[in-house]
Nucleic acid binder design. Structure first.
Length: 381
DNA sequence: AATGATTCCAACCGCCATCGT
DNA sequence: TACGATGGCGGTTGGAATCAT
């Protein structure tokens, strides 16, 4: 016995929408709204359509201020960066691109961006197979500046403006221009993290989301759960059976969290508030890239990371960074920083994104990880 | 010009989460 | 608490449009 259909399949029209149907739906919603019930909507209007179909048509096509096609380089970059960071969470990615729908972005990714990236990867793979090389290139398709060095020992050093870090067993070594990550050091250190203050929302009376409770709400929404839903003395993510028992976090500013977590936090509020999100975090990230600001970031971060035990810094979010948060930490730095990473070629590069994906996105298609990782590798190479 | 291959995207499907009773 | 209805999301598909031969 299968699931009951959401509508009478025999009496609903399928396939492309006619202009008359569009007009009916659009004018009704503009006058009356959806009434909070998509299933009942087509009957009210006199459309022989499934309610879900109406909803999809409205959201993806009829809704005001929808943009179709003509993705800019900047949008490409955002999509690529977010895909690498969070995987195929199209609705979240769409929230960062005003006027774009998740369906549009998904189609764009599947038909173009993925091929671009994988095409680049294949070219790079061929190059790598031909022998050791040092290359510096500007990726015209994504607008990313990429510098790659393949050393004799098979170690790759990547410098890219997106600042994505995919590695385990990493730590920082001071460097004049970049943060150099060395391998197999047990001291976790995260490269430049953005200061997300002032909050994009703090100026208009909206609450700030750079706090633990917001991120917590977000993680819950994304599928995590805290045992302190009833008792605020524990921060323990259900599902992480081996996870450490973490004491309540200190009141730390957003830099204690990685970019992606902050992104998630903003998205959580976006989801809560439905619409109206302005992706100022990205703008902020761009605007905070000056040398002095980065130096200030470095200072703040070193203070945070050096003075607070790791578990407290993570404040219950340590699962984002993999098992044993006080040991080797893997993460993706996000989309706003410059960083240099050194990775061991050929090792399992399951960084923050992949771990997050495997946990939060456990219901996605089986081939998700391989494609996702492939895209990550491609993006990195 | 004909035809097969490929690309693109609107729409559908099914699963899961949430809400209301 | 259980269960059905609904919303939301991501994956997939069908067919039109475009390209290559």
């Amino acid at each position: 016995m299968g699931r009951a259909p959401c509508c009478d399949k025999a009496n609903v029209k399928k396939g492309p929408w006619s202009p008359e149907e569009d007009t009916k739906l659009k004018s009704y919603i503009e006058q009356h709204g959806t009434g909070g019930n998509w299933i009942a909507l087509p009957q009210k209007i006199g459309l022989k359509r499934c309610g879900k179909s109406c909803r999809l048509r409205w959201l993806n096509y009829l809704r005001p201020n929808i943009k179709h096609g003509g993705f800019s380089e900047e949008e490409d970059n955002i999509i690529c960066s977010l895909y690498i960071s969070i995987g195929s969470r199209w609705s979240i990615i769409a929230a960062q691109l005003p006027g774009r729908t998740d369906n549009d972005i998904k189609n764009y990714w599947n038909t173009r961006l993925k091929k671009k990236l994988l095409g680049n990867k294949q070219r790079k793979d061929k190059q790598a197979r031909r022998g050791t090389s040092i290359t510096t290139s500007s990726n015209s398709s994504t607008g990313l500046l990429i510098k790659q060095e393949i050393t004799k020992r098979g170690t790759i050093t990547n410098t890219n403006t997106s600042g994505i870090l995919l590695n385990s067993n990493i730590s920082m070594v001071p460097c004049a221009d970049y943060n150099i990550i060395s391998i197999d050091n047990q001291n976790p250190y995260w490269p430049e993290l953005p200061v997300l203050t002032p909050s994009p929302y703090s100026n208009d009376g909206q609450p700030c989301y750079n706090d633990h409770s917001s991120i917590r709400r977000l993680l819950i929404k994304l599928g995590g759960r805290f045992t302190d839903d009833h008792d605020h003395d524990e921060y323990d993510v259900v599902g992480s059976t081996t996870g450490p028992h973490i004491p309540p976090p200190p009141a730390l500013p957003a830099p204690a969290l990685c970019n992606s977590a902050a992104l998630f936090a903003q998205q959580a509020q976006y989801n809560t508030d439905n619409y109206g999100f302005v992706p100022q975090m990205l703008e902020h990230g761009q605007s905070s890239s000056s040398t002095s600001q980065l130096a200030e970031l470095d200072h703040q971060e070193s203070c945070i990371y050096n003075s607070v035990p790791d578990a407290q810094v993570l404040g219950g979010l340590e699962f984002l960074y993999g098992e044993g948060s006080t040991g080797n930490i893997s993460k993706i730095d996000g989309i706003v920083n410059n960083s240099t990473t050194t990775t061991t070629h050929g090792t399992a590069e399951m960084g923050w994104g992949a771990e997050m994906s495997s946990m939060v996105y456990s219901t996605t298609a089986p081939n998700f990880v391989s494609e996702y990782q492939s895209a990550q590798e491609s993006y990195m190479s």
